[in-house]
Design a binder for these strands. Structure first.
Lengths: 202, 202
DNA sequence: CAGTGTAGTAGAACGGTGTTCTAGTATATG
DNA sequence: CATATACTAGAACACCGTTCTACTACACTG
C-alpha cells in the first residue's frame, strides 16, 4: 500500500469532520484561521473535499452560521420553558448573553460580519427567525400575564434584542470604557426591562 | 520623458490620496475591497507608497478607524453643545445613529471587527474614549438638572451606548425581523430613556 | 544653479489564499 | 464481483500582503 495514501476518511464522516475542524479553528484562532487548507488539514481530509461537500468556503461558514442560530434557538426555548413569564423573560436575556460568552467567535460570525466575504443565503436568514420568534412568544406571555402592558410584541422583541445584542457586542469589541461590576449585566437587564414598563410577578 | 513614468504624485499628497482612496473603496465596496494594490491604483500611487506612509495595510485601516472616531466625537460634541440637557441627550442618540447610517462601512470597522486581521493599537483605542466621555458629560448634565436621578454617569453611559449600538448594529447586520416603522428609532429612544427613569424638562 | 539626498515609481519575487482541474485509488453499492 | 462513487494528491492560476531592488523625479541645501 502507498504510504502517501494511507489515510482516507470514511465517506459518512467527511462533512462532519470538516465542520468540527472549522468550528474548532474559528473558536480557537478566530476568523482568519478559516482557510480551506487549514480546515482540511485539521479535519484530516483533502482540501477538495471541502468543495465537494460545501461548495465553497462560504458553504462552510454558512453551516457554522446556521448551527449557531440553532444553538441560540435552543437556549431561548429553554428559557421559554420556564413557567413564570417574567422569570422566563430574564432568563432569555441571560441565555442570550451566555451563548455569546460561551461562543464569541460564532456569535460574531452570526451578528458582526467578521467574515466580510460571507453573505448568508436567504435560507440561512430564515434560520435567524426562530430565536426571534421565541423571544416574541416570551414577550406575548408577559403581555398575557399583564407583566408588560401594550405594544406590538414584535416591536418589543426587536427592541429588546437590540439592547442585549448591543451590550454583548460592545463587550466583544473591547470597547467597554469602564470596569464592569460583577452584576453589571443584571443591572443592565433591570434597566432594559424598566424601559418596557415591566411589572414583575415576583 | 518615459511615458510609463509620466505620473508621479507630489510628496505632500500621497498619504492623503491613499486615505481618500481607502475611504472611498471601503464605503463603496466594503472591507473586501481594501487591498493594497487596489487602494494604490485608485489613489494613483505605487503600492509601495502605502507601506512607505502607513507601514502596512493595518496602518491604513487604523487611520480609517481613528478618523471615524474623530468624526463620531465631533457629532457627539455638537449634540452636547445644545443648551437643554434632555434635548442634548436625545440629540446624542440621534447623532450616533445618524453617523452609523451615513458611514456604515467605517462604523463596522470601528465596532464590528469586519476586518478580522486588524487590531487597533492602544493609541487608536485611546481615540475611542473621547466620544464616550462626551456621552458621560451629557449624562452628568442631565443628573445636574435632575432629569436623571442617581447612578454612576460612567455606567449609565456604557449602558446607553450599548443600547444605541445594538439598535444600529442589528440594523446593519440585516437581522431586523420586522419592518421598522418610520419613527421606530424615536420609540426605541423613548424606551431606552424610560429605562434611565428620565424625566424630560420639556 | 548644481549637486546630493529623499521619496516616489516600477517590477520582481515569495509564501499564502480560494478555486478549478486532472488522474489515481479506495470505498460503497447493486 | 463489477462498477460507480467519492476521497485523495497534486498542479495550476489569479489574487493577496509583503519585501526587496534599482531607477528616476523632486526637494533641499550650499
Amino acid at each position: 500500500m502507498d504510504a502517501a495514501r494511507s489515510h482516507r476518511t470514511p465517506s459518512g464522516d467527511v462533512a462532519n469532520e470538516i465542520l468540527r475542524a472549522a468550528a474548532a479553528l474559528l473558536g480557537e484562532h478566530g476568523p482568519e484561521a478559516l482557510t480551506i487548507r487549514r480546515i482540511a488539514s485539521v479535519a484530516g481530509v483533502a482540501p477538495m473535499s471541502v468543495y465537494n461537500h460545501f461548495g465553497d468556503k462560504g458553504g462552510v461558514v454558512e453551516a457554522l452560521f446556521r448551527s449557531g442560530f440553532t444553538a441560540l434557538h435552543d437556549a431561548m426555548e429553554a428559557a421559554n420553558a420556564i413557567a413564570d413569564p417574567f422569570v422566563a423573560l430574564r432568563a432569555s436575556g441571560r441565555a442570550y448573553r451566555q451563548f455569546a460568552l460561551d461562543r464569541p467567535a460564532v456569535y460574531k460570525v452570526m451578528f458582526s460580519h467578521v467574515i466580510p466575504e460571507f453573505t448568508p443565503s436567504s435560507d440561512a436568514l430564515m434560520d435567524t427567525v426562530s430565536s426571534f420568534s421565541t423571544l416574541v412568544t416570551i414577550l406575548e406571555r408577559c403581555q398575557e400575564a399583564s407583566i408588560i402592558v401594550g405594544g406590538d410584541a414584535n416591536v418589543l422583541a426587536q427592541h429588546l434584542w437590540s439592547m442585549i445584542h448591543g451590550y454583548v457586542a460592545l463587550g466583544h469589541a473591547g470597547i467597554s470604557k469602564i470596569e464592569a461590576a460583577e452584576d453589571d449585566f443584571e443591572q443592565f437587564l433591570d434597566r432594559t426591562l424598566l424601559g418596557f414598563a415591566v411589572r414583575p410577578t415576583s
